[in-house]
Structure formats: C-alpha cells, structure tokens
Design a protein around this nucleic acid. Structure first.
Length: 597
DNA sequence: GCCGTTTTCGGCCCGACTGTTTTCAGTCG
C-alpha cells in the first residue's frame, strides 16, 4: 500500500505493543487473528480467494470441538476442511511462539485505524485505501473531520452523497453498538412483519436472516415477502412510524434504520421465487455457499430466484422441495450454520430437534424470597397457565446479599410454603431448589445439612470474576464435584453485548459435568443464553443433560424459555437431551438419585 | 490459501443497490 503524503497532524505516537501472552492459545484467539488477517489482506489488495481462505479458516476453527493443542499435535487439524498446510503451520507458529510473523509484517504496512474504518457502512477496502492514500486519513476521527471540511466529496469515485453517508455512518457507529439482542430484534421484527403482512399485495411473508436462525445477537432484521407488485409495499415499509431514516429504497429491496437503532431490510419477490429467496435470505452465508457448491456439483445453479438446470427453473413450492431436489432432508433454519448440517441431511441423520411443546416443566426461577417479584404460588400458577406441569424454583443463596439471598431460616420457611402450594395446586408440582453461589474456593454457600433439604441445587458464579482461567476452571469443577450439585448455572457468566464471559475452560467443565452426572443449564434469559449453543453438541456427545432455565424474576419472564428452546435447537438437541422433557415423576427420580449420591 | 467424481492447476457464488458515472466500480449480504 502506498504511503500517503505526510500531513502535519500525522505525527502521533505509535501504540505500545502488548507483552506476549503466556496462556495457551485458544481457538477464538486463532479465529480472531485470522479474521483480522483477512481484513489486513483486503486493505493490501491481496488475492480475494486468499482472503476468503483466512475467513473460512477462522470460522472452521471457532466451531471445532475439542482441544486445539491436541489437534495440532496429532495433526488432526490438517483434516479440517479449510485448513491446509500453510494455515496449519501458521497455527503451529502461533501456539509455539505466541505470534505470527507474516501477520505482523502485513499489519505493519497499514495504520490500525484503517481496520476501524472498514466498519463504516459503505466504506470497503477500496474506499478506505483511497482516503488513506490521497488524503492521508488513517482513522475514523480524521475521516469525520475531512468529511466535515468537504474534502472527501472531492475525491475521484466519491461525491457529496457518499460524504454525507460516511458522516451518517460514523454517527450511527458511535450511537449504537453494531449488534442487538435477539429478544429486542424479535420484538421489533414481529411488529413490522405484523404490519407489512396485512398489506393487500402481500402473499407470503417471513422473518429471515439471523433472527430466523436464532443467533443470540442480531445485526439487522431481514423481512421477506412475496407479491406481484412491490411499490406500494415498499412505500408502507419505509413509511412505518418506527422508521427513523430510509437508507435505500428500490423495487426489490429497501433498507431502513429503525428508531430503536436496528437496521431493517425488506425484500419483495414473486411468489414463485419465495421459497428460493427465503432459503437464500435466511442464510447463513456459509451455509448458502455450501449449498450453491453442492447445487453446482449436481449440475444446477442456485440463487435467490431459483434452482436452475440449463437455465430452466426447477419449480419448488417450498424450502423442503429445494432440499429434496438437492438430495437432502429438510434442514431447520437454526442448523444452517455450515456446521455439518448438509452432510447430515444427505445421510438422513439430522436430529429430530427439540420443540417448545416437548417441555413439561421449567427450572431456575426466582421468587420474592430473594430478588423475584412474584411469590412461590404466583410463579407456580404462572407456569401452570403457560401449560407446564411443574416448576423448579431456585432463589439466590445467602452470600448473594445484593439479591436478598436466603438465610438458613428462610430456606426452611420456604420449604414449608412450597409444601403448602403443592397441596393447594392439584396436578402441578413445585420443586424447591436453590441457586447457590460458587464461592471463590469452589465450595457451596450452605453446609450439607442445609443443602440436603433442597430438591435440587443449581451452582453459579456471581462474584470474583477476575480469576485466571485455570483458577476459575478449578473453582467451578470443585462445585460440580460437590455431591449435592444438580445443575451448573450460566457457565460463563457472560452478559451479551455488555459483559465478557469470565475466563474458563468450558470443555473441562463439560467433562466434569459428564463425570459427575451434573446437568448444565441453557440460561434462557436473552441477555445470557449461556451455555452457548456452540458447545451444546460437545456436551451432548459427552452425555451431559441440559436444562432449559428461564432464570426469570417475574411471571412473564418465564416466557424466555422459548429462547432457550431456540438455542437448544441450534445446538442440535433433541428431547432426549433435555431434562425439561421428563415428567414430574422422572424429575423426582433424577433429583433423588443425586441427593443419595 | 484451499481443494479435487473436470485432482497437482485452475477454479473459487452471485446479484442488487448506490453513487458516480455515461457503462461501471464498490459495497453488501
């Protein structure tokens, strides 16, 4: 990349380098570095296919089960699709030295701020390069200044509109984080879909994209409709009261920014095209790429308009028909992440995924005994009204003073109350559990004579997040090994878009759970969705059972179990993997076996 | 840089929209 002419403001000190890490390299470290390498190579105008190789490898590594170090040593990593000799040796180098020389060399050629600029919508590698080489702009702040001074519009290939869009994009980037919680996006998306699908020109409609795939966070809302004519639909979409600004408006596609800060796209296709478009716009991009590749191999062409043989459309009424034509079983949207679902569909071994109606009861809700807003009875009646046959309450333990954790006296009082509620509600059962803090040394929050009073014990970390990975892992494993532990709560403590997970070796936790017959929860609160779906298949393979837990503090909050079911589906789970699908007698047996060790 | 039922070279998914152009490049998904 050509160096720009120096400008007076360019003489800033370079950033200090981080000291090399001593901790072993993780899969997400490698994935992040490869992603960044891809962006750097883009800015350096490298071969686009080389760039894609790095991106593919990043994804492949991130979703690998098992321990990276072992896979390097055994050479097993070389069998992973997307990792060839060259990338394998890069990963080896990273593991052995903690650095990657070609990455550092490439990165040294471009200022750090250029990578940041790629995040501005409309600023791709070419445009970033242009402002850098011609105006000497090397970060977002400088770009903003230049645009305000009208210097960007004067560049060849740019113009007034581009300049305005850049300023708007920078503003948005600052105002909103790039991603949104699944729950927030769902609320917005359902609202829009409700309004748009009422339009008289609309035949079929669908929420597509990552929402349909139940990703835990969402970049934008994709809505697809079929109609014979699109103009009036586009008008009502861009005119919705929740729209803040219109980014693009065309015949087949319009984009808006909602007042909530979420981007939403509407696409209109003919009804004949609808199945193909719904598959295409549901993604993921990686799944689509594999599907196209498969189609091509079989002599077809697949795109959002259809499946074509010799340029002739192969009619398909729905997505099922498309998969069938390509020799595949139907792949539910949650699985379309290029994680082996196409191979499984080909061999007819896709799992029969869990569904909401398979759930018979819920676990891990709070009551007024700790920081909940409803009594034991109110929560129980709420769960019953949602169609459940039992509810496992689990208030905070005594260390959680901030959340009104239960004293030993409270525990006994609550036990009495649970008994009474169970008497008064016929055909419904309340299990008394506790969400016991895992103390820093890995012990639980009550002595055994109290722990043995509970029907079940959920163990979770609520303080002292800053331990090293090995200390945290040891701490939690000790809690898992406690004979009274039934269930591990939110295993990483993450709060989506707000707080990083604490450092912990999840594979080691899964192994410990398997050895000690401890259930792992999918905390279904949309801020958590923890255990992450990417680890569920490993847990399942190791024989670890999963619980869907709303961790709700209100009656309505129990509805969050639906997100948990979505995540369980995304993790390939069936009803045999999830203890909520046992009836109350089954749960009784499961809990009793634990209490007796 | 990866990959192989067109296999060790030559492909690698493809179309819409925008803004700048006047036939197209860049970006995005």
């Amino acid at each position: 990349m050509k160096k720009p002419k120096p400008r007076p403001s360019d003489s800033r000190p370079s950033k200090k380098k981080k000291p090399s890490e001593k901790t072993p390299i993780t899969k997400s470290d490698v994935a992040r570095l490869f992603e960044e390498m891809a962006s750097v190579l883009e800015l350096l105008d490298e071969n686009p296919f080389k760039i894609r190789s790095y991106q593919n490898a990043a994804r492949a590594i991130e979703s690998l089960p098992g321990e990276l170090g072992e896979m390097i040593d055994s050479g097993e990593l070389l069998n992973v699709k997307g990792i060839g000799k060259s990338l394998f040796s890069h990963i080896e180098e990273l593991r052995n030295t903690g650095r990657l020389e070609i990455y550092e060399k490439a990165k040294a050629k471009i200022p750090e701020g250029l990578l940041e600029m790629l995040r501005i919508p409309g600023m791709g590698p070419k445009k970033v390069k242009a402002v850098y080489e011609k105006l000497g702009i090397s970060d977002i702040d400088q770009l903003e200044t230049a645009a305000n001074e009208n210097r960007v519009a004067a560049l060849e290939g740019f113009g007034t509109k581009t300049q305005v869009n850049i300023l708007y994009g920078i503003q948005n980037l600052r105002k909103y984080s790039e991603r949104h919680l699944l729950s927030k996006a769902f609320t917005e998306a359902r609202g829009i879909l409700g309004e748009i699908s009422k339009h008289r020109d609309v035949k079929r409609s669908l929420l597509a994209g990552s929402l349909r795939r139940i990703k835990e966070t969402i970049k934008d809302i994709d809505i697809l409709v079929s109609a014979a004519k699109s103009e009036a639909i586009m008008d009502s979409f861009t005119g919705l009261s929740r729209v803040a600004s219109v980014v693009a408006k065309g015949k087949t596609k319009s984009s808006v920014v909602l007042k909530s800060g979420i981007n939403a796209d509407l696409r209109v296709v003919s009804d004949k095209e609808f199945p193909f478009a719904s598959h295409y716009f549901t993604g993921s991009k990686e799944h689509n790429t594999e599907m196209r590749g498969r189609a091509k191999k079989m002599g077809y062409k697949l795109n959002e308009y259809g499946l074509f043989k010799d340029d002739k459309l192969v009619a398909c009424d729905d997505e099922k028909a498309i998969f069938r034509r390509l020799g595949l079983d139907y792949i539910p949207p949650e699985l379309r992440e290029a994680q082996g679902e196409i191979e499984a569909a080909e061999q007819h071994v896709l799992p029969n995924l869990l569904s909401e109606t398979d759930l018979i009861g819920l676990f891990h809700v709070h009551t007024t005994y700790s920081d909940g807003t409803a009594s034991v009875k109110e929560m129980a009646k709420g769960a019953e009204a949602m169609g459940f046959a039992y509810l496992g309450i689990a208030d905070h333990s005594r260390s959680a003073a901030y959340a009104g954790g239960l004293s030993t006296a409270d525990v006994k009082k609550q036990a009495k109350e649970v008994k009474e509620v169970n008497k008064s509600l016929r055909g419904f059962r309340v299990f008394q559990g506790i969400e016991s803090d895992i103390l820093t040394d890995g012990s639980l929050d009550y002595p055994t004579e109290i722990l043995e009073l509970f029907d079940f014990v959920v163990v979770s970390v609520h303080q002292n997040f800053g331990l090293s990975q090995s200390e945290m892992t040891k701490r939690i494993i000790r809690a898992i090994e406690n004979p009274y532990t039934t269930m591990l709560g939110h295993p990483t403590g993450r709060l989506l878009l707000a707080r990083e997970a604490y450092k912990v070796d999840l594979y080691a936790l899964i192994d410990a759970a398997a050895e000690n017959d401890v259930v792992i929860e999918i905390n279904s609160n949309p801020h958590r969705l923890d255990l992450d779906w990417r680890y569920l298949r490993t847990a399942k393979e190791k024989g670890v059972k999963i619980a869907i837990c709303p961790d709700s503090h209100t009656v309505e909050g129990m509805e969050d179990y639906r997100y948990g079911v979505g995540i369980a589906r995304k993790g390939w789970l069936t009803k045999d993997d999830v203890i909520n699908c046992l009836d109350a007698t089954g749960i009784d047996t499961l809990f009793a076996s634990k209490r007796k060790g």
